[in-house]
């Protein structure tokens, strides 16, 4: 209908030691879902579509809050065990911020389609999910973002690693951080690391989260400055 308006903005990633890959986001690009967003981190990109609050099908209905369902679709093939496990992780993270009590006996469905995976897929899924929730206008208690850290064999922290960096890493940690108090919503680890290293990664992720939250705010501000 309307010529899709394009706006490209570049910002230097701020913060010392915070070197995230270039990231970008598009909101409201699908017509059928109630909210949609595509999030790109370097060459990793995930498309999120959000439906709801809609009618609940089957016996999943909860009397006091909305049912949140997350579906993670891989780029090729059918979702397997890894996707199922990530779906649960994403679902619990989203449940922590979505004010589901305001829409009892309804269902909220979030479909995440992986478009390309070049490392840090889980954090990209988290960011896409948050932007999708924001686009759908669902009531949220706060925003969240995902940050992946990799510990390379020398013990140095690599933020937002690529697939290659993830393969070489000793441990890969992903955190979901909320925007209200910069607290951890979700933490997941692959590989082994010491408690100190985990704390260091968390601190680095929290610093990187500030950049992402500032991006969210600028993105929304630009959208409303036009209307």
């Amino acid at each position: 209908m309307a010529a899709a308006e394009q706006e490209e903005e570049k910002m230097a990633a701020a913060g010392g030691g915070c070197c995230l890959r270039p990231f970008s986001c598009e909101q409201g690009l699908l017509s059928r879902p109630d909210g949609s967003a595509a999030f790109l981190q370097g060459d990793t990109s995930v498309l999120a579509g959000l439906y709801g609050p809609a009618e609940v099908k089957g016996s999943k209905e909860l009397p006091d809050r909305a049912v949140l369902e997350v579906l993670l679709r891989p780029k090729v093939g059918l979702p397997g065990v890894v996707e199922r496990s990530r779906e649960q992780l994403l679902r619990r993270t989203c449940e922590a911020v979505v004010l589901g009590v305001l829409h009892p006996r309804t269902a909220i469905t979030l479909v995440l389609q992986v478009l390309s995976d070049a490392g840090s897929l889980l954090s990209c899924c988290l960011n896409a999910a948050c932007m999708g929730l924001l686009d759908a206008g669902l009531p949220l208690s706060s925003l969240f973002c995902g940050v992946t850290c990799a510990l390379d064999p020398t013990g140095a922290i690599v933020l937002d690693p690529t697939t290659r960096q993830e393969q070489e890493a000793r441990a890969v940690l992903t955190f979901a951080i909320d925007s209200a108090e910069r607290k951890v919503l979700t933490a997941t680890t692959k590989g082994s690391c010491s408690v100190e290293e985990m704390q260091q990664c968390l601190a680095a992720a929290q610093r990187a989260a500030d950049t992402i939250f500032q991006f969210y705010r600028d993105s929304v501000r630009r959208r409303y400055s036009k209307s």
Binding site: Q6, M11, P22, S24, G28, D43, R222
Partner: peptide, 17 residues
Amino acid sequence: VGARRDYVGGGGEPPSC
């Protein structure tokens, strides 16, 4: 009025996706 796109990055070209 249309879909939006925003970039943040450490300089250079926007992602080639």
